[in-house]
Amino acid sequence: RIYPLMRVTLTTSDGASVTVSRQLTKHSGFIEKAITDMAVDDNAVPLSAVAVDVDDATLKLVIEWLTEHRDDALPYPEKTDEERRADDIPAWDQAFVQKWDTKEDQQQTLYAVITAADKLDIKGLLDMTCKTLANKINGKTVEEMREILQLECDFTEEELAEIRKENAWCEN
């Protein structure tokens, strides 16, 4: 049972503290496990702080997303036998990540939020940000993908020739 008024204090990797409702933290597998491991009385308000390995700026974005998604169903549905698509990101989430486009460090922000979602075990946020990353390379040529991801080709010529043969139908 989750007590809606119960609050959790999160301490960030750069020393800040943020207090949030348990209604939000219930979506984080990491925080919920930390609370369970403390074996404290669930009625205790406020709860002892949970340290998260996420910086303050990123945690604020995570909390903004959690606030919008506080009523999402739990557990997060695992759709292993369904086709996944990158074009089904909800409108609010699209606008949420598009706000970063104007930032100089938009790529690093996306990276930080993906990493935070992974560390905090927030499956919905992780899926959404992975789809956002997928959309950045969707429909791009191999060279464009390399440039976007800043990855160097480390194939030998023989390996590259093999991959080109395998991908011939993709380049029609």
């Binding site: 996944r84 698509r85 990158a86 992780l126 899926d127 992975c130 789809k131 990353l133 997928a134 390379i137 969707n138 429909g139 791009k140 040529t141 191999v142 993908m145 390399r146 991801l149 990855l151 160097e152 080709c153 480390d154 194939f155 991959i163 395998e166 991908n167 139908w169 993709c170």
Partner: peptide
């Protein structure tokens, strides 16, 4: 997870290294 959201073509193209 990122690969899984790509279509088959993009998925194969994304094998950039």
């Amino acid at each position: 997870n990122v690969f899984s959201s790509l279509g088959m073509k993009d998925r194969l193209r994304a094998r950039v290294n």
